[in-house]
C-alpha cells in the first residue's frame, strides 16, 4: 500500500510538473535537489521514466531561458542522480525476480509432494519399470537436443552469412523454430525428471520405503559412483554438475 502511494506521489509530481508542457525553474542547484529527492525514492521502471522526463523538461526550460551553458550545468548535476537511481531500480528488479523465482520453487516443491501423496503406487517392480521407461525417453530427448543444437548452430552461421539477403528471413524463422523445439524437449525432460521424483517420493511418503532403482551400468562406470547409484537415480547428472 505504502509502495503504491509513493509511486503515485512520484508520478503525480512529475506529471503535474509536466502537465502544462513546461516547468518552473529556479536555480540549477535547487531544481537538481528537487530531482534528487524524487530520484531517491525510485524503485520501478515507471518511476524512473517519470523522473527522467521531468529532468529533461527542466533541462529544456533552462536551455530556453538561459541558453545551453545553464542547461548543461543542470544536466551535469542531475545525471549522476539518475544513473544511481537507475542502478537502484536494477537492484530492485533483480531482487524481485529472485523472489519470484524462489516463490515458484516453493510452489514446485509443494506440488511435487502433493503429487507424491496422491500417486497411486502399484508394486515396486511396476513403478521402477515406469522410471526406467522415463529414463529411456529422456535419453532419446537428450539425443534430439544434441542434433537440434547442431542444426541451430549451423542455421545461426548461415543466417549471419546471409544477412541483407532474402534468405535471411527464412533462416531467422528456421532458427526460431529449432530453438523452440529445443526448449520444448528440455521441458519434456524436466517433466520426466519430476515424474521420476514423484514416484520415488511417493514410496517414501506413503510407505516409508526407499525405492531402489537399478542404474545403468555404463553410467555408473563413467561416474565411478556405483555404490551410490542404487538409490540416487541421477548420479551421472550429479557428476555432470561437478
Amino acid at each position: 500500500m505504502k509502495k503504491i502511494f509513493r509511486y503515485l506521489a512520484v508520478v503525480a509530481i512529475a506529471a503535474a510538473a509536466s502537465a502544462c508542457g513546461h516547468v518552473t525553474i529556479t536555480t540549477p542547484a535547487k531544481d537538481a535537489h528537487h530531482i534528487e529527492s524524487l530520484a531517491q525514492t525510485i524503485e520501478t521502471e515507471a518511476e524512473l521514466r517519470a523522473v527522467e522526463k521531468l529532468a529533461s523538461e527542466y533541462e529544456a526550460a533552462y536551455r530556453q531561458a538561459y541558453g545551453g551553458a545553464m542547461a548543461m550545468k543542470f544536466k551535469s548535476l542531475v545525471e549522476p542522480m539518475l544513473i544511481s537511481a537507475g542502478e537502484r531500480r536494477d537492484e530492485f528488479r533483480a531482487a524481485e525476480e529472485w523472489l519470484a523465482q524462489q516463490q515458484a520453487t516453493l510452489a514446485k516443491h509443494i506440488n511435487i509432494m502433493e503429487r507424491a501423496w496422491c500417486l497411486e503406487i502399484t508394486t515396486p517392480d511396476q513403478d521402477i519399470a515406469k522410471i526406467e521407461a522415463n529414463n529411456q525417453e529422456r535419453t532419446v530427448l537428450e539425443a534430439n537436443i544434441e542434433t537440434l543444437t547442431a542444426v541451430k548452430d549451423e542455421c545461426s552461421m548461415r543466417y549471419f552469412n546471409a544477412l541483407d539477403t532474402p534468405e535471411a528471413e527464412t533462416l531467422r524463422e528456421e532458427f526460431a523454430k529449432v530453438n523452440s523445439d529445443i526448449e520444448s524437449a528440455e521441458q519434456e525432460i524436466d517433466a520426466l525428471n519430476i515424474d521420476n521424483e514423484v514416484i520415488v517420493l511417493a514410496y517414501k511418503l506413503q510407505r516409508g520405503e526407499e525405492l531402489i532403482v537399478a542404474c545403468d551400468e555404463e553410467c555408473c562406470t563413467e561416474c565411478g559412483d556405483a555404490a551410490e547409484c542404487g538409490d540416487i537415480m541421477e548420479c551421472c547428472d550429479d557428476e555432470d554438475e561437478e
Binding site: A95, W98, Q102, T105, H109, I110
Partner: peptide, 16 residues
C-alpha cells in the same frame, strides 16, 4: 525476512 522465509523453506523442502 520474507525472502529468508521462502529461501529457508526451499532449502528444507529440497531435502524431502
Amino acid at each position: 525476512p520474507y525472502l529468508i522465509f521462502i529461501e529457508e523453506c526451499n532449502a528444507l523442502l529440497s531435502d524431502k
